[in-house]
Design a protein around this nucleic acid. Structure first.
Lengths: 209, 209
DNA sequence: GTCTATAATAGGATAGAC
DNA sequence: GTCTATCCTATTATAGAC
């Protein structure tokens, strides 16, 4: 119980920079946020930022890594796993939305900068994440669990909902994380399932909460 | 057939400024886009912009008006109308998503700036639009057509999907506008309807394509 | 690890010629 | 209606003291 995270004191400066920068990037965009604003929010002077990060770009780059590294791993694992694809999609969705709701950073700005040449080195992993999600949806359609919808449009709608949830929670680490994750994952599954009566069994098999 | 819009020539400078600025705002954000970039895209010099708009802010303000004025009118009309709420939601959704897909401007940046104090005068109409959408959903839950979901979360998920579609089409006026509008409206209705078998009747009653 | 001071650049907007 | 030239401010980042 001596963790600096749990008792609310002594958050390291580098950590506070990431949190405040993510909020400002989320609200005003990466290019629209100045290093002065970040420094003011952290309550240090502007040049002191450059002791913790070599450039403004590197602050954003770290936020991209936080957003994508675990998500891509989970999605790729579920895409390659055995068993009901609908259940695997549900499990991935609950994990990722829950991650979003618990994250202390506002990751809103990530999708907005990922196509910027400045972050070209981060693009491939994001695309791998997208491919994994699409693969699970295609498996669910082929297996007959999902309606024969446009898999591309379905993957997009899912991303859009997650993106909206990211902007909504904005790094506030909401306590109802699991509840929201299950509600949104259920919303998505209902829109795609051929037989709504299977929803209860899918949730039970996924054993997330 | 002499319309400047249809034969592709002679688009007025003011119009080209709106189109190119909307694309740049959508890609790099309002604050992240310089007036020099806009001018370059329009192929005029930077100060010439200020002959057509008094400031960079006023370009964005006009894009906000384009996004919200008709949408708010349609949503408020459907919220106050008679008949099946699910049908009225479907009709609004098809209209708005179709509008998005036909719009020659990239309206991605609108949601990102609407909370900025710079555009405080545009906030009330956006909130009226949100209230109208929520009202239709609440009516559909009360009437028993929709499952007893969280109306707030449902309205959010709908906005997120429309917001994603705005970013996707990015003012390219896609030819499959009606098809996409119906697919996404169907996705949303399926996620909310208590009885999936009513979907066909709702679509028929809405008579949108 | 933070500060002040400052360099170097890019930004929004104006003046006035054509 | 567009241009060149320019003003003034804000920006990212560095240098060097403490």
């Amino acid at each position: 119980m001596a963790s600096p995270e749990t008792n609310g004191e002594e958050v390291p400066t580098r950590e506070r920079i990431l949190r405040e920068a993510s909020r400002l990037f989320g609200k005003k965009g990466f290019h629209g946020t100045s290093t002065r604003e970040i420094a003011n929010a952290v309550e240090i002077r502007q040049p002191s930022l450059f002791h913790h990060f070599p450039s403004k770009r590197d602050i954003m780059a770290e936020l991209i890594d936080i957003d994508h590294s675990e998500s891509a791993a989970v999605a790729e694992r579920e895409a390659a796993a055995e068993g009901s694809p609908a259940c695997r999609l549900y499990r991935y969705l609950v994990w990722d939305i829950s991650f979003i709701c618990r994250c202390p950073y506002d990751l809103t700005s990530v999708e907005g900068v990922i196509d910027d040449p400045l972050f070209a080195d981060k693009l491939e992993r994001r695309n791998a994440l997208k491919r994994a999600r699409r693969s699970i949806i295609e498996q669910a359609i082929e297996s007959g669990e999902f309606l024969e919808v446009d898999a591309d449009l379905a993957e997009k709608a899912i991303v859009w909902i997650m993106q909206g949830d990211i902007a909504e929670t904005a790094g506030q680490a909401v306590p109802e994380a699991d509840q929201i994750a299950q509600q949104l994952a259920t919303f998505i599954l209902r829109a795609l399932l051929k037989d709504q009566d299977q929803l209860a069994a899918i949730k039970a098999d996924a054993h997330c909460g």
